[in-house]
Simulated scan of single mutants.
Amino acid sequence: MNLKNLYLWAALCCLLTQSCFKTGTEKEVVKPRAIWTKEKANEWYGQQDYLIGPNFSPSTAINQLEMWQAETFDTATIARELGWAESIGMNTARVYLHDLLWEQDSVGFLRRLDTFLNIAQRHNIKPMLVIFDSVWDPNPQIGKQREPRPHVHNSGWVQSPGSAGLQDSTQYPRLERYVKGVMGKFANDKRVLAWDIWNEPYNLNKGSAYGKQELPNKLDYVLPLLKKSFTWARAMNPSQPVTSGVWMGNWATHDSLTAMQKLMVAESDIITFHNYDGPEELEQRINWLKRYGRPMICTEYMARPNGSTFQGALPIAKKHNVGMINWGFVDGKTQTIYPWDSWDKNYTAEPTVWFHDIFRKDGTPYRQEEVDLIKSVAGVQAKK
């Protein structure tokens, strides 16, 4: 074979193998994993115990940042309160993260998240971790968090990313690093139940003091970033399901969904949703979502004055095999025993009927009959 033919043969080999002449520093493009089939999603769900738990942050934290920052990461309170969850049969908890934690100290944040997962595992709790959130304050700031406004519901909760991150596409690379960094670390971790990519992405916070601070075209920024976030998440090939829960609106038919709701459903391995209405409305929405043939978890419910109660919701959910994660757990700095209207109405003392939450700070149940029902639904054997 002459020299010319030898070069042609080598070039052909390169084309066939697509690997010749690599320097060893080139990164192979990882194709995001596919959305789970209905069969795979239902197989995963069939391997879980009946899922029941709270949206959890320790009573000593006003928001996600205070929960996770090194100076205020309160493992003693976390362990004590997750112990109370375990004692009433809860086996999951929905827990919020934040992109600014990654920017501030990615190594420390991952270390603290690992510590949290160890604590949760000791109490037989498998958390669902929330990546982004569109609710309440759109201007989050790292560092010491403000004190709660007296008697006001969730007066210090912050969005992730905030308005600055949403409207500045040059921040997308750091958001991508956050999603991939966190999910890459725990993508095959059996301590993690699932990933909630974005909490209430189309929430404009109307009726709160923060509504006036929102971007006028917020949803135009959220929609493409939500799509990217699902892609970034799947690029890490997580063994756990990814999802984003629909809330409010008309779900009666697929065509009645908004463009963002359709995206959320289409990109979700399992169907998640929120419902703060009475039992009839809850059951109707469950029946609407059955058309997708996927497992369902209600990731927010329970607002007593709204008619959303444990007594009304849990029997219906158990009948339909829908997992249930209520809002709030221990009365604390989030002050979610107060209703949403506390942003406009002046409260001066603990409300007669708590809006959310199950336990007082000393571990005493707000209503013993609710705790007894949760134990019954969770299958906890009564002590003789």
Rank of each mutant, 00 (worst) to 15 (best):
V179C: 05
D196T: 01
K206C: 05
G165C: 07
P148H: 08
D196H: 11
M128D: 04
G181H: 03
P138S: 01
L166A: 06
L215K: 03
Q141K: 14
P216G: 03
V182F: 05
G143V: 06
Q121D: 13
R112L: 07
H151N: 15
V152H: 02
H151Q: 09
H151R: 04
F116W: 12
L166E: 02
W136T: 01
G162F: 08
D196S: 09
K126G: 04
A194N: 01
Q213W: 08
W157L: 14
V192W: 05
Q145C: 01
Y172M: 09
G143K: 05
G211E: 09
R174Y: 09
K206S: 15
D137I: 01
D168K: 11
N217P: 00
P138K: 01
W157T: 13
E176V: 10
R122G: 13
Y210K: 04
W195D: 02
G108A: 03
G184Q: 02
Q104K: 14
S160V: 11
K126C: 09
H153C: 14
S163T: 11
L204I: 13
V130K: 03
R191I: 06
L215R: 05
T170K: 12
N203W: 12
H153W: 15
L113Q: 08
D189M: 03
W136M: 14
Q159H: 04
K206R: 15
L129F: 08
S134V: 00
P148V: 12
N154Q: 11
V107H: 09
I142H: 06
F132L: 11
L215T: 09
W195M: 02
N199S: 12
V130F: 03
F132P: 07
L204C: 04
M128G: 14
R111L: 12
